[in-house]
Amino acid sequence: MREKPKYAAALSYNPETDLAPRIVAKGRGEVAAKILAYAKENGLPIQENRELVETLLTLDLGQEIPSELYRVVAEILSFVYRLEGKGR
């Protein structure tokens, strides 16, 4: 039996309208499992990074990520863009 996720967070980012990615969902336990299930059902990319998600859980919903997280989030966005065929 697969262990349930302990933590999950979801980001949204539209480079045309957003200055930085925003927290759109976050949670622990059952909430984390629902976030991941939603992502899988909707074909959204999932990236595992425990340290990042633990930091994201400290932010408020709707809050932009702080500048000290730009580099790690940029790496994740690069991963997502490559998956979607938008990368160079």
Rank of each mutant, 00 (worst) to 15 (best):
Y13C: 03
A32Q: 14
S67R: 15
Y13T: 07
A8Y: 03
P45R: 10
R28F: 12
P15V: 04
P21D: 06
Y70M: 03
L61G: 08
G87N: 11
R88F: 13
R82M: 08
P66I: 05
P45S: 13
E48G: 05
V31H: 07
Y81Q: 11
N49F: 01
I46W: 03
P66D: 11
G27A: 07
G85E: 07
Q63N: 09
L83A: 11
N42A: 11
E54T: 09
E48I: 01
I65D: 11
D18V: 01
E51L: 10
A39W: 05
Y70Q: 04
P5E: 01
V73F: 01
Y13R: 12
E16P: 01
R22Y: 00
V24D: 06
R82L: 07
N49M: 04
L61C: 09
P5C: 05
G87Y: 13
S12C: 06
V53D: 06
G27Q: 05
A33T: 02
T58D: 13
E3C: 00
D18L: 06
L59H: 06
L36Y: 05
S67T: 12
D60A: 13
L44D: 02
L59Q: 09
S67Q: 15
S12T: 07
L61M: 14
L56R: 10
R82I: 00
Y13M: 11
G29L: 03
S12I: 02
R2H: 13
R82T: 05
R71C: 01
E75F: 03
E30F: 06
A20R: 12
P5D: 04
Y81C: 06
P45E: 14
E48V: 11
E75Y: 04
L52I: 02
T17L: 13
D18C: 04
N14A: 12
M1K: 14
K6A: 09
A37G: 05
A39K: 07
K4D: 12
N42I: 00
I76F: 03
K40G: 01
A74F: 03
E64K: 12
K86G: 11
S67K: 15
T55L: 12
A32M: 11
T17R: 14
S67M: 10
V73R: 12
R71M: 02
G87C: 02
R88V: 12
K6V: 05
R50N: 13
K26Y: 02
V53C: 09
A9M: 11
E68F: 15
